[in-house]
Every structure is written in C-alpha cells, then in structure tokens.
C-alpha cells in the first residue's frame, strides 16, 4: 500500500461524475491531492492523487458501483505524493497552425532538445470543420535564454506554424 495513488477515471461526459466519485473516496476516509479534470472529446477525464489510507482493492471495490452505473473506466497507479513541490514555469510557448500530422512532435522535439521540461500542455482543435486549426499552449521550465529558444523554434515558422515563446514572470507579493 503506497502513500498515495494516482487514480484515473474516464467515461462519457455527463453531470454528476465528480460529485459521485469524490463522495465515495471521502467516505472511505481518503484525501484528494492535486487533480486534473477536464472534458476531452466527449469524455470526461479525471486524474487525481488519492491518499493511500485504504488498500487498493478497497478503493477499487468502493468505486465499482459508481463506475458501473456511470460507465467509467478506472485505473490506479501507486505514486509518491510529491505534494508541496510545485515547479514554476519560466516559459510559455503558444502554437497555432493548420491542423496537420506531427505538429506536436515537431514542436516538442525542439523543446526537448533544449532541455525544456514541459509542466503543462493543453491543446485544442478549433476552426471550421473542413479547415481545422490546432492550438497548443505549453508551460514549462528551460535553462536556455529566450533568444536561443526562439531561434530553435524559428524553422517551424517557415512551415506556416505560428510559434510564440514568452517568459512567464511570476510576481511574488
């Protein structure tokens, strides 16, 4: 039994998923840590840290009725809590381009080659049905200067992808 678990739930989006799932977890005496919950392509997806007061089997057994009723798929991974160790991004990268294969790989390969650590990546497909536009926002940490990061990404601009790097200035007050 580990200190924390990473619980993943995915199912067709409908109202009430979060409240039902979190009530079950609460009644088991487990705590929630960091969580990401978002609608993706008609599914509702939940990834959250759940404290390990209960054995994995007990957690899964308690969630089974809700999962069955709401048609959710469940996955549980043991995990270190790692709470209270937030990494703060120093760069924001925004990418907008006509939707085409490989756009994410192209951008992130360049970032990885500069040692850029992605802390958060969100992307959406927008635009008209027949002319989709891919929009991606990345926040992360990189030891490189803004100029060298920008220069590394420059080749993408020749391929009709708009890439914008800007510093994330964190104000402490």
């Amino acid at each position: 039994m580990s200190e924390w678990n990473l619980l993943t739930l995915v199912g067709a989006d409908r109202p009430g998923i979060v409240s039902r799932v979190t009530r079950v977890i609460c009644e088991l005496g487990c705590n929630l840590g960091e969580a990401s919950m978002i609608r993706l392509g008609g599914n509702f997806t939940i990834m959250m840290m759940v404290s390990g007061e209960q054995p994995d089997e007990a957690l899964l057994a308690a969630l089974a009725p809700v999962a069955e009723e709401m048609d959710l798929r469940i996955h549980l991974d043991p995990s270190h809590g790692g709470l209270h160790h937030h990494l703060v991004p120093n760069y924001q990268v925004r990418v907008v381009g006509a939707d085409r294969a490989g756009i994410v790989a192209d951008v992130t390969e360049i970032l990885a080659s500069r040692g850029f650590n992605i802390l958060e990546l969100e992307s959406d497909v927008a635009g008209e049905l027949d002319r989709p536009v891919y929009i991606m926002s990345i926040q992360g940490y990189c030891g490189d200067t803004l100029e060298s990061l920008d220069a590394a990404l420059a080749p993408l601009r020749e391929r009709d992808v708009s890439v914008d790097v800007s510093p994330v200035d964190v104000l402490i007050g």
Partner: peptide, 13 residues
C-alpha cells in the same frame, strides 16, 4: 493575465 505568487500563499502560483 500574469502569474502570481504570494508570501502568504506558499507553494502555489
């Protein structure tokens, strides 16, 4: 929009 942290709110931005 900009990112903020605070002496009164440790470990969160």
């Amino acid at each position: 929009m900009g990112r903020e942290g605070c002496l009164s709110v440790p470990d969160y931005t």
